[in-house]
Design a protein around this nucleic acid. Structure first.
Lengths: 254, 254
DNA sequence: CGAAGGCTTGATAGACCTCAAACACAGTGG
DNA sequence: CCACTGTGTTTGAGGTCTATCAAGCCTTCG
């Protein structure tokens, strides 16, 4: 894992291709964006609630959350997980002030790109602009799905659903190993994302295990029964809007 | 209220101006978009979960919800309320398949615009494209705020927060009358939005009333104690990203 | 005036929380 | 190599918030 490899924007290119077709030239243009590389230790903020950023970041490696601290209680609500290739604060391009913070769960490398660069790219290549817009819309769609879960699903179902989502998104970027993914998340973190207590998350995890759906140990999640997990979470991946990637060159309408 | 008045896109122009500066020419271009006008009765769908629309709609008058039916239970989860000037399915411009349905709460008039028209407008006037993108991002920000509420706020607080949000948004489009807004919503509908039972919503409403914060009767919400309501809901309007509208012509940087 | 839908109230049940303590495991230092 | 510490997981007991069920009331409207 050399420095050049670490600074490549390939994860972003792949991500964008997984949601919107791009020509060779457009892929090159995305990959050639001027950027700075930051290596962020675990459990550290990348941007803060209330910031007015002039740049956006791209996760290259690691695991990042969007969250908000809740008043005095010390609790935090996690609103999204971000994986390599994601642009978690792309919204800041048009939303001057951030309404939430971004923080790492594990040591992560991120590329930082000026808004001017992104705007220029979107201007020069309309389809890249469309892909970026679409990316923010998918982020929103995932948020809506979480909202539905919070409002109407049981703890058991919500947890199953979240496992399904993370598994599918990891799969889309090639990070599934057999039936397993690396999931460097504590049950405490999970409880912050699901609006549950850590104790209750623990009990529900044990239930999922007892039902033979998953194994989750030392940072690795293994899905033993995908169908069962999907049923438990009433999971329908349509909302992720993932395209199947063509292995051969794509035909893109003009 | 004549037919011409009903078909004017002024609510949209005002809405876009309230979130992004537009020149006179741009405002005219928005207002001149070719569209069809639909009058939709109460409690009827405008678009359905799973549709692949080729047009987007603009609420001109009325009250619209985004919702999703939950499996078999017959329950529905409401994910957003939309008011005059809002474009609730603007996201379909880049999200080919809808993940939720739009339905009216009262008889509403909507303007329907082809995606080609919107794309053309965004292409010809970059700032209009920005305004539209920004609109979808604010929609997402509101969703995130709901998510935080669902995950971390009590029923009492959530209801207070929702009242605050609706009041502020009505205010932004000039629909506040003194301390009151028209709120043609049943407690049952409220429960679908907050992920609560109708019975519990009723009890919480009574609590808000007893505390002298609101009066809510026959479709009219009166805020008796704005500060108290804001405190009860831990409401901070920043996430709505509303600009104060200049009354005099605006200076817009090029 | 009757019907229908919405609102209100009471009683009971369940999901989930809080507090508290014990256990498991990895990393650290002696 | 082992005690030690800190973090994460697990278990138990009791409590709270909210759901569900069921019935009565009130308002609106034809």
């Amino acid at each position: 894992m050399n420095i050049l490899g670490n600074s490549s924007l390939l994860p972003l290119v792949d991500k964008l291709r997984s949601i919107h077709p791009l020509t060779q030239a457009e892929q090159l243009a995305v990959g050639a964006m001027p950027r700075q590389i930051r290596i962020v230790p675990a459990d550290q903020d990348i941007t803060h609630d209330g910031d007015k950023p002039t740049q956006s970041c791209i996760i290259l490696t690691g695991f990042v959350i969007r969250y908000k601290l809740i008043g005095d209680s010390g609790r935090r609500q996690i609103m999204a997980f971000y994986l390599p290739g994601d642009m978690p604060d792309l919204m800041s391009l048009h939303l001057n002030i951030l309404d939430s913070s971004l923080g790492t769960l594990v040591a992560s490398t991120v590329a930082v790109v000026d808004h001017r660069v992104l705007r220029g790219l979107a201007h020069d290549y309309a389809r890249i602009g469309d892909a970026l817009w679409r990316d923010t819309l998918i982020d929103a769609a995932i948020g809506r799905e979480w909202l539905v879960g919070m409002g109407s699903r049981s703890a058991y179902s919500r947890l199953a659903h979240l496992f399904c989502e993370l598994f599918q998104r990891m799969d889309a970027i090639g990070l599934v190993d057999g039936k397993s993914i690396r999931l460097p998340i504590t049950q405490n973190t999970m409880s912050d994302a699901l609006g549950l207590s850590a104790v209750h998350v623990n009990r529900v995890v044990q239930e999922l295990r007892a039902n033979g759906l998953i194994i989750w140990k030392s940072g690795v999640l293994t899905v033993e029964d995908w169908g069962g997990l999907q049923d438990a979470g009433a999971f329908d991946p349509a909302y992720l809007n993932i395209r199947r990637l063509a292995t051969s060159p794509e035909i893109i309408p003009p």
